[in-house]
Design a protein around this nucleic acid. Sequence first.
RNA 1: UGACCUGUGGUGUAACUGGCAACACGUCUGACUCUGGAUCAGAAGAGUCCAGGUUCGAGCCCUGGCAGGUCAACCA
Length: 560
Amino acid sequence: MKEQPKKVNFIHLQIDEDLKQGKNNERVHTRFPPEPNGYLHIGHAKSICLNFGIAKKYGGKCNLRFDDTNPSKEETEYVESIQEDVRWLGFDWEDRLFYASDYFEKLHGFAIQLIKEGKAYVDDQNSETISNQKGTPTRPGTESPFRDRSIEENLDLFMRMTAGEFDEGSKVLRAKINMASPNMHMRDPIIYRIMKAHHHRTGDKWKVYPMYDFAHGQSDYWEGITHSICTLEFEVHRPLYDWFVDQLQDSDYRPRQIEFARLNLTYTVMSKRKLLELVKDKHVNGWDDPRMPTISGFRRRGYTPESIRNFSDRIGVTKVDGMIDVSLLEYSVREHLNRTAQRVMGVLNPLKVVITNYPENESEELEAINNPEDPGMGTRKVPFSRELYIERDDFMEEPPRKFFRLAPGREVRLRYAYFVTCTKVIKDENGEIVELHCTYDPVSKGGNSPDGRKVKATLHWVSAIHAVRSEVRLYDRLFSDEDPGGHKDVDFKDFMNPDSLKVLNECYLEPFVRESKPLDHFQFERLGYFNLDYDSTTELPVFNRTVPLRDSWARAQNKK
RNA sequence: UGACCUGUGGUGUAACUGGCAACACGUCUGACUCUGGAUCAGAAGAGUCCAGGUUCGAGCCCUGGCAGGUCAACCA
């Protein structure tokens, strides 16, 4: 499947420059370093495509590393989902699956080294006191009274912290850097804290855990990462990471951190904390709810890896913090699914049609094209009979100008079938239209008119007795505001769209869909792209609408 | 009253060591069509945050502003 030609971004340019200068023996090695504290979202997909994409472009490597330094938030479930998502997106870390916890021993040794060099000390103060002494961005901090403890005492205390002799929160290990630095992160950052929590990989072995800032840069260093790509908010951490690597460095090799702007999408939230809240408080049905911007949500919704990769490439990579219109994402799926999705006919809001001049108890099979964009996908047979369903929206008793579909006395084409003319409208006692009578023209079989007669519209339809009754779930944006998380005084949940999920139970699809497996993609002609959901049973298939087709009729209506 | 980062059509990105601001999405026309889809053809829309400066020439360089973002978790 062809993908767009890859765009060059500023990171590629910097790598080119590094290569030209012969840095790091001209190696290129990146990594994708998620914390396993939630499911991956589309913003992570951008980072995954970037990091693995760079490795591919430069003939280098890309590691998958879990930054699992906080056992209180991390779980194996997340580790597994993350691997599944990265693989599904089409990327391979080969044998390079790592964990920050792989380095706990080394990190601990490094901390001891810093203590011995007089570059780290144990502080007995509580977090509030330490925080107050840090100062503010505009005012320098003040030094801790424990800053000048002897190396021996520091060593002894740190070993006893490690042994679990002290309570959580009673002591921390801090790097001794500069309390007056204009960069807050250099003001004697905490590098180890006491935590008596069970770790998903190291179990109960450790009573002290390294802070992320103390683990991340060193992990990159030990893995031989050359380009540590991360998001903008870590820019101010870079001097600290460099400081730690300075204490370790034993050659010319050094990872270079490059920051880029995280992805923001309109009408959604993109923070794990907020997504977790939606899941925990049951505002959605789990991390893979098709309305979620998670990779698993998009997968279940019917997005394809190709479309997400193309999207990632189209949005580019910069340091400008912007907001991408979801319509670009939708364009990306439509573009891919248009070329690849099996076409099928399905009626979402059925209106019964009786072809009065078609014989009773008879049926025939008509040939339909599986994908007009790809003749290689072949054709299939669609059953036709006297009683059909068409879309309610495709009939109007009093059609306005420019409504081309069925109306009393009007002739339209039933796709791949016949020309039919509406002869009678049947209503119930409430005046509700319940059935249409039509006649068909037998010589128009297949949908062609031998006499060259034109018809303004082609409708999709399903033979009533052959139809597969299904449930179809229609999704709309989860939030009604462009930037639900961007309001200071309003909680993002206040913007939740009450109509983000609409379930239709009386949908009729052509028999072809019986063959499908969960996640199979279809275009329901004239409606949109859909895929089979995991919730399907043999009695009741369930389909998700991935994205509707562009609909210029509906758009024209909306403008009024 | 700090440090760091960022300012290019509505949105997202381009513009090689200065050389007529380009592309995509979106929007709007029209053509074609057995999907009011797709496709094709075309249009509108920015003079690059502002003000100076250097230069034959500045989105790119310099100076000074302005605006936005990030940083004060024993989170990552």
